[in-house]
């Protein structure tokens, strides 16, 4: 059962260097062959500085940093009972190859809810605000984790 007193907890930042090859690999894995993600020249022609990160790219630093199990342990969530309920991104600036982005994960909301069928679950919202090497905010990721009890 999630420890609801942990709301407001901030974790050590995720630091991630964005590579052009990773952006291309990620787009291709989705099957997204939009040339702006694959080819620098095409991206520049379309008005970008370089190949921009696709809309869901911020899952890459989150998953590759390997910290999700630590968050889940710290929040006392049962790993076998947790579902990814929702994911949302707000975009402030493009993320480009060569950027070094730093994301600070924060638990912004924890609440117990009762489903229509009467079963209880804990809803945990984790927000990560990412800034680039210039200190500019680039995006915010918001994940809703649902722990069935």
């Amino acid at each position: 059962m999630a420890d609801l007193s942990k709301v407001g907890t901030e974790y050590t930042p995720i630091v991630w260097e964005v590579e052009r090859g990773k952006i291309r690999e990620f787009a291709k894995a989705i099957g997204d062959f939009n040339p702006i993600y694959l080819d620098r020249e095409a991206a520049v022609k379309a008005g970008y500085k370089d190949t921009p990160a696709p809309p869901t790219f911020l899952t890459v630093p989150m998953m590759w940093c390997g910290k999700m199990p630590d968050f889940i342990n710290d929040l006392k969530i049962n790993f076998m009972m947790v579902l990814h309920g929702e994911e949302e991104y707000e975009y402030y600036r493009e993320i480009y190859p060569g950027d070094v982005i730093t994301g600070t994960p924060k638990v912004t909301k924890m609440e117990e809810k009762t489903s229509k069928s009467g079963s209880k679950m804990d809803m945990i919202t984790l927000e990560v605000l990412y800034i680039n090497q210039k200190g500019e905010e680039v995006a915010k990721a918001r994940s809703l984790l649902v722990e069935r009890k």
């Binding site: 997204d32 939009n34 970008y48 929702e86 949302e88 918001r142």
Partner: peptide, 15 residues
């Protein structure tokens, strides 16, 4: 981003 250029996207969320 096949419909709207990536640079125009401000928010995107799913359940």
């Amino acid at each position: 981003t096949d419909w709207v250029p990536k640079k125009r996207l401000k928010r995107y969320g799913v359940r």
